[in-house]
Amino acid sequence: MIEITNLSLSRDGVKILHDVSLRLPQGRLAAIIGPNGAGKSTLLHCMAGLLVPDHGQVYVNGQDIHALREQSRALILSLLTQSQGAVPRLSVRDLVAFGRWPHHRGRPGPADHAVIAEAMTRFDLDALAQRSVDSLSGGQRQRAFVAMAYAQSTPWMFLDEPLAALDPKYVRDIMDRLHNMTGPDSGQRSIALVLHDLSVAARYADFCIAMKDGRIVAAGPWREIVTSELLSDLYDTPLRLAELDGAPVVVGL
């Protein structure tokens, strides 16, 4: 469980998060949605302990995330940021192996190699193992970075716009894999991700955190709280939550 209480954060004198409070249960795929500038990425970085708030606390599994040392934090949560820098000529296998760093601190053992191999297979990267990350397509590259976060074996995974610039095939591929990770065979990881594609969020997310102007407008199970009215108010434009061939979609009117 993640528990956020009265979180406020300012940057360069501008308040970005206003008194945010939230309870996020475990084992869910939670979508953080909202218009540009709503504070979604800032909230995610705060939850990951990378940004220190002006006020308020973030408790992850009962531990104050900002009171933990980096190494302890890296065993609890992983974060995939919007822009990932890759070392020139770094192979896909070596990139995924970095996910084990918090566990071995430079001295990988057999257990680490086993997790890396499992992550490579799970994300269908075996054929690309020796390819340089620079040479991958956008979708393959994103899959490699998600595999690295997966290899970190943390109970919580945060992803900041993991679908940006991906075509529908890769969007589906990544989301299917992420959704499977919240299942029991992946140790029921808990995932929170910032999404702009509302149809994708409607299809995969089982928890919603709706943000606007640095505040949480609504938070709760997707099916219970997300309505056409909520989405229209959130984005200040008419939107409708509908169904197409049994799958939820969000369309602009």
């Binding site: 990951a48 990378l50 980096e70 190494q71 302890s72 934090r73 890296a74 065993l75 992983s78 974060l79 940021t81 990932q84 820098g85 890759a86 070392v87 970095f98 996910g99 760093w101 918090p102 970190q152």
Partner: peptide, 11 residues
Amino acid sequence: LGRVQARVLGL
């Protein structure tokens, strides 16, 4: 890997 990614990995 960059400052943010390194911090995420516990450095």
